[in-house]
């Protein structure tokens, strides 16, 4: 980008920054979130935060508790059909959070989802993904993991995969409710895991899910 282009882009960046800060502030008032770094540290660079998924605001909470310098370089992976459904959501998803938007309909895809995530990682971003694939409204701690995490790990074996357990957010904003209830949420970042050479998919996914479930059980 030339200097002139950067200056022209400045209002856009200010607006998206302010919108991001406003959303974070709102999340803080509602949930007073606390980050617990137990086994990993908030460092820049490509890495994958994978988390339990109980609410649409999950990634907002992870994003909020990250140090501000890391926020701009941390991109949630989210469903394109949800985030482009209205202009406001599109602004939040695409412009404020700079989400990596994945098309959930294989027949309509022009890009491979894992390829999109790899591109973002290779550009130096960290990713936030929810390997359960959809919101967990069951009584189980976690739903079975989809295979995306495995493909990411196999193609970028040197990237840290950090389990992140979000507690309580499902009580703040249960599915289908419009008014949130303020309750304290904690976000626990566990020790990173990596794939072992030749590790089979089922074994790896079970290991990743266990690492995440252990964080939840320890709370």
């Amino acid at each position: 980008m030339t200097g002139v282009e950067r200056i022209k882009a400045l209002p856009y960046r200010i607006v998206t920054k302010l919108a991001g800060d406003a959303i974070s502030l709102f999340a803080r008032i509602l949930t007073a979130p606390r980050a617990i770094w137990s086994g990993s540290d908030p460092l820049p660079g490509p890495r994958v935060y994978y988390s339990n998924h109980t609410s649409n605001a999950d990634f907002v909470l992870i994003w909020t508790v990250l140090p501000p310098v890391l926020r701009g370089r941390t991109r949630p992976v989210a469903a394109l059909d949800y985030w482009l459904a209205s202009p406001l959501r599109a602004f939040a998803g695409r412009d404020v959070f700079r989400a990596v938007l994945i098309d959930r309909r294989p027949e309509a895809r022009t890009e491979d989802p894992v390829g999109q995530m790899l591109t973002a990682l290779d550009a130096g971003s960290a990713l936030i993904i929810f390997p359960e694939g959809r919101r967990n409204t069951s009584d189980d701690a976690l739903l079975p993991f989809k295979s995306g995490l495995f493909h990411l790990a196999r193609q970028r074996p040197a990237v840290d995969l950090i389990p992140v357990w979000i507690s309580n957010l499902n009580h703040v904003m249960p599915r289908g409710k419009v008014i949130p209830v303020p309750l304290i949420c904690t976000v626990t970042f566990g020790a990173p895991i990596r794939i072992v050479p030749d590790e089979p998919k089922e074994i790896f996914l079970a290991r990743a899910a266990a690492a995440l479930a252990d964080l939840g059980a320890a709370r």
């Binding site: 007073a32 309580n168 009580h171 249960p174 409710k177 209830v181 303020p182 309750l183 304290i184």
Partner: peptide
Amino acid sequence: REFLTLTTKSVADH
């Protein structure tokens, strides 16, 4: 906010 974080509740109490 602190107190209700710890109390017994269910989705029905939203």
